[in-house]
């Protein structure tokens, strides 16, 4: 048989009928029986469970997580308030609303709105106020900063000097200890400087939150807390014993006079 070019092409490029394609089972046999979990490790998130570990790896290897962790290092207060926003603004209202009890539904809605409003205000205020400070801290703590002065400048210079000695391998044991101590002191300073603004804005932020919650609840969430009536007004009026004045009782005579 003469093989023409079309037939030749079929034979070479598309395979022969003798090479049958693999079935789904054959192709996926390995994966079908390895679903990533076992009775031994099911359900844990400790890294032993394969699906959990894969999920964790997916998050950890993602670009956004790397950026988020760097952001957490640079902006402590803003990240704290972002976490608070997720917890107080989403998880807390969801939990409050899913709790049983129909009687206090209005209270639950109010509590949820309150939590959401405080989470949102906390995040906006914290981020807006502390972001410029965080940027300035970065500029001061930068290796080649032009904003260092006084004792802090001396610490930086000493660290740089000891680091050069360390890299050259001429550092003594005592100098190594001193370097470690100075780096720790600078790190502690960094943590304080990043977090002290939160102490300073903590009280005004809480006051602002308290003041802004009612209008936010009213205009954003359409909620308005009704003032509870005082107990005296809540007590239902007792039915008066006015039957004595009726004619039938007036005619009854007797008793001690």
């Amino acid at each position: 048989m003469i093989i023409n070019s079309v037939q030749r092409d079929i034979v070479l490029r598309q395979g022969t009928s003798g090479l049958r394609s693999k079935s789904y089972k054959e192709k996926n046999e390995q994966n079908m029986y390895d679903r990533g979990y076992s009775a031994e490790y099911c359900g844990s998130f400790t890294g032993k469970s394969k699906p959990a570990a894969t999920f964790l790896d997916k998050i950890l290897s993602s670009n956004w997580f790397g950026k988020f962790s760097e952001y957490s290092y640079k902006h402590n207060i803003s990240t704290s308030s972002l976490i608070a926003l997720v917890l107080a603004g989403i998880m807390r209202p969801a939990t409050i609303m899913s709790l049983p009890g129909k009687k206090d539904k209005e209270d639950k809605i109010y509590a949820s709105g309150h939590a959401m409003a405080s989470g949102i205000i906390g995040f906006i205020v914290s981020t807006a106020i502390t972001s410029p400070f965080d940027e300035s801290i970065k500029k001061v703590f930068d290796k080649n900063s032009k904003f260092t002065r006084g004792k802090f400048k001396a610490i930086n210079e000493k660290i740089a000097e000891l680091n050069i000695k360390k890299e050259a391998g001429t550092i003594t044991k005592e100098a190594k200890k001193e370097l470690k101590s100075l780096i720790r002191k600078r790190d502690a300073l960094n943590t304080f400087v990043k977090n002290i603004p939160d102490w300073l804005i903590g009280i005004p932020r809480a006051m602002l939150t308290i003041a802004l919650i009612p209008p936010i609840l009213k205009y954003v969430f359409g909620l308005e807390k009704k003032k509870k009536k005082p107990e005296s007004q809540q007590i239902q009026e007792q039915p008066k014993m006015n039957f004595i004045t009726k004619d039938i009782f007036k005619n009854i005579k007797g008793g001690v006079q």
């Binding site: 904003f147 502690a188 400087v193």
Partner: peptide, 28 residues
């Protein structure tokens, strides 16, 4: 704006006596 904060506030704040004392005490 952040340059001004770094120059006028943060660079002075990191030299603030009680703060450096606290950092020295709590560095470990």
């Amino acid at each position: 704006f952040t340059d001004a904060i770094a120059d006028k506030f943060t660079s002075r704040f990191v030299n603030f006596g009680p703060l450096t004392w606290l950092s020295e005490k709590l560095k470990n």
